[in-house]
Design a protein around this nucleic acid. Structure first.
Lengths: 140, 140
DNA sequence: GACGCTATCGCCACAAGTTGCGATAGGCTC
DNA sequence: GAGCCTATCGCAACTTGTGGCGATAGCGTC
């Protein structure tokens, strides 16, 4: 379904602001915060409010154009929906971030599906833990 | 290590406020929000500030007395550290919440450990997805 | 191109949580 | 128990994000 069709069938409209937010997310190489998107958008249209950016990110997610994920801080990250899917490992000690292929998460997803009938989206929130480098050395 | 020892070895102090926050978390049956803890604490000592509650929850987590988890809203939940560990499944459609035994998550944890040397804490953040009831019925 | 319906906008206030700062008070020593 | 060091406190400002409201502007129809 094209963006035009998605807009029409959901009763949404394409505004200047929405276009700018979508372009900003698409142009970003990796995950970006709403604040970074707002900054880009305001570079050309300084009067656009932060709430407009937040609402448009939500709307674009409903349209299937962008996706948000949570790392371990309180800040939501956004990326284009057509980028390759992946999970995140975040170390609670050093804050380091590693991407993992979805296949590494599939065994648990299958088990949750089989035991609970639950379709897990393991890319939505980062998996928090302790990375190899930060693990405490035994004894000493 | 006792609480006294933990306090001493980390250079922390036991204040009236810290005691009240700890008691409030311990008395709570399940996960509670910082706001709920603040409410309990203020019942007897109304002048205690919210920031004091937040800072004490952090301090008590460093001491190993309490633990925080994230469900899919922006609100952090706290519980005593010695309660039985478990993960959470949260449905992004209906918001329903299911507890899962850690064993159901172990296969993925093992794989992440073997492939990435990463010790995952799968109880820290809820696993978001779609529950059995909310899954879209095929065709219709 | 004008008209009307209503989605969306900018603005403001609020919610959850964090941070800086001067004042207070644990807890160690004497 | 007094004195000292500094962790912690209460307060206020700030951050990230949400929600209400009157004004504006897509977009479908004529």
């Amino acid at each position: 379904m094209s963006l035009q069709d998605a807009l029409r069938s959901s009763g949404k409209r394409m505004t200047v602001q929405r276009r700018l937010v979508l372009d900003a997310v698409r142009q970003a190489r990796h995950h970006v915060t709403a604040e970074e998107i707002a900054k880009r958008v305001r570079a050309k249209h300084p009067q656009i409010d932060a709430s407009t950016v937040y609402r448009n990110l939500q709307a674009l997610e409903e349209l299937g154009e962008v996706i948000h994920t949570h790392l371990d801080d309180r800040i939501t990250r956004w990326h284009r929906a057509d980028s390759h899917p992946h999970g995140h490992l975040v170390c609670r000690v050093c804050g380091g971030e590693t991407e993992v292929r979805p296949i590494a998460l599939a065994s648990m997803a299958k088990r949750l599906h089989d035991e609970h009938g639950f379709d897990a989206d393991l890319a939505h929130s980062a998996i928090v833990g302790i990375c190899r480098q930060c693990r405490v050395v035994p004894s000493s």
